[in-house]
Nucleic acid binder design. Sequence first.
DNA 1: TATTTGCATGGAAGCGCTTCCATCGCAACA
DNA 2: TGTTGCGATGGAAGCGCTTCCATGCAAATA
Lengths: 336, 336
Amino acid sequence: MTPVDVTLGQVARQAGVSPATASRALNGKNGVKPDVRERVKIIADALGYRPNRAARNLAGGRTSVIGLIIGSSHFRDDFYATTLVEAVAFEADRHDEGLMLLTDSKSPSTAVRNMVSDGLVEGVIVGALAAGDEWVVELIEANVPTVLVGAHPPQPDVCVVDVETLRSTADLVGHMIDSGCERLAILTGPSYRQDALTRLDGFRLAHSERDLAVDEDLVFRSNYRRRSGYDLSDTIIESGANGVFASNDDMAFGLFQGLRERHVSVPGDISLAGFDGTFSTDLSAPELTTIVVPYEQLAQAAVRSLVQLIDGETPAMVQMIEPEIRFGETTRPPNN
Amino acid sequence: MTPVDVTLGQVARQAGVSPATASRALNGKNGVKPDVRERVKIIADALGYRPNRAARNLAGGRTSVIGLIIGSSHFRDDFYATTLVEAVAFEADRHDEGLMLLTDSKSPSTAVRNMVSDGLVEGVIVGALAAGDEWVVELIEANVPTVLVGAHPPQPDVCVVDVETLRSTADLVGHMIDSGCERLAILTGPSYRQDALTRLDGFRLAHSERDLAVDEDLVFRSNYRRRSGYDLSDTIIESGANGVFASNDDMAFGLFQGLRERHVSVPGDISLAGFDGTFSTDLSAPELTTIVVPYEQLAQAAVRSLVQLIDGETPAMVQMIEPEIRFGETTRPPNN
DNA sequence: TATTTGCATGGAAGCGCTTCCATCGCAACA
DNA sequence: TGTTGCGATGGAAGCGCTTCCATGCAAATA
């Protein structure tokens, strides 16, 4: 089955040492003379030796496989999911870690725990999204090294990597206010999603920093769906808003489309900004002003932290990655 | 590390049998009395026993992990990739197979072979796409059980699961011709992609079946990009075509957008169909007539075949999944 | 009843690796 | 020169499982 199969023993014999020493040499443990180590390494290389992960794992060592779990419901529609999967896959590879995709077709925690107790996966990265608490708690309590990516309900003792959202949202919203949107509306995401709440908080923060009250009539509870942005077009127009911060790009695109169809000029009549940094497929749409989620960095931080966790180190419990605000053509230019 | 760790030995002892028998009982090997098998199973269940995959693998058994590799270049933009990953993940899970995501950040074949010789992955599913030959050949020669999903250059001795494209395309195109598109254009995909070629073949087939010559001036070489459909709007209009088969939905959407902006009615002035069954994000666009790629079925067939391959059985070398033609509002109705 | 057949079962080896423990040799010390 | 100490090394156990092989027992046959 396996194409070539050089074992540690063969390497050891070739190098004239015992398997024990060869193992130590290859794994960077000390107690091996430098020249011996070097010799073993060279021979291993020459022979194309690859340690059998199963054996290594069995013997108590590392598997070098991490798991990634993303709610399947988010897989399809969410730009988030795809991009994160790709980024994590890339990053895991850089760390020489295998990446198992764990589905949550049954119970997610069961799936994960099973994998872990199967001895295959040493830790998991959870695309947090709307991850319910029990879930994560269960993992942590089962002592599974876990890193959460993305917004999530506050949770003690869990390693989290997230996008700094409050400040950046407040900055963007603040800019909109400062550049003339005295009637600024917001399209929120669903209230059960932490990220949606934080984005709304950022919206409020920008106002309070300017001693402005948020006009609650301009807070439109929505659901992150493109359709909902589109459907709110009339309402927005009637509200007299001259600026809209959509809590995600999808809604912004939907709204944009609605506004265009109603011949409302963006940003002439209404300034528009989103959040995520996704790409519109609408080829004649202007570039959206938005906050770009840095997936690569998220993935990088997540994998790094997880590896540390597995190695018994203590990574920063909370890591906030600064997103970049990208000014497009749907708001007035920043220096205005 | 592992939360609970019930071993086969414990199950065996509890059941009052030897580990050997327990193993046989649990793995459905014969040579175990039904009542004993039942007892062992019940106890294993009660104890929450989960076989250690590493050990199982080491002992020469199966790992029950398969790999999935998709060119990373396709990961981001291709609807294909995401959907396939999801479908395969789901299906693998149903088969109790773990799913490793293999990146091709280095050389793809190296990545795969490493995984396999690491003893982690028993076989791979390759999202074929534009998979170069060497690649696949290398895998096959390295004796790695491999299943290709999707169109690919003809290749002997490789297990392939693909969408039946020629006939379905010819059917759809035929319908367009029959329902009044005497000037039917095609937007092709890039010529290095097998699927693009087959779709073009289907287009031609529909014509030859009707003893019609393909007007080569209506064959527009394109690249699957939405943008290219959009950009070809004027050319299409000038060509006098009254129907367009776009080789994928993306181009169809792009073209649709272009036509709408130029106030050309679809299907009034020009009938339009695509291929793939993706969803338009354009909320006010009509539903596109298209051929829906059945990802779930593809994934299902692929996983099934791979498992057979791994088990030493001989699955059908080529499996063609029949897609469904979905008539939307961009062509005249089918019974016309 | 004696013998063969065949199925159910247990014992034990071993997959490739890591790691504990004992050993050995050498340098530094008394 | 005789000890001690310590770093380098090898031997061997064992991770949890599968599977070969031998054993034992019951049913089927002569």
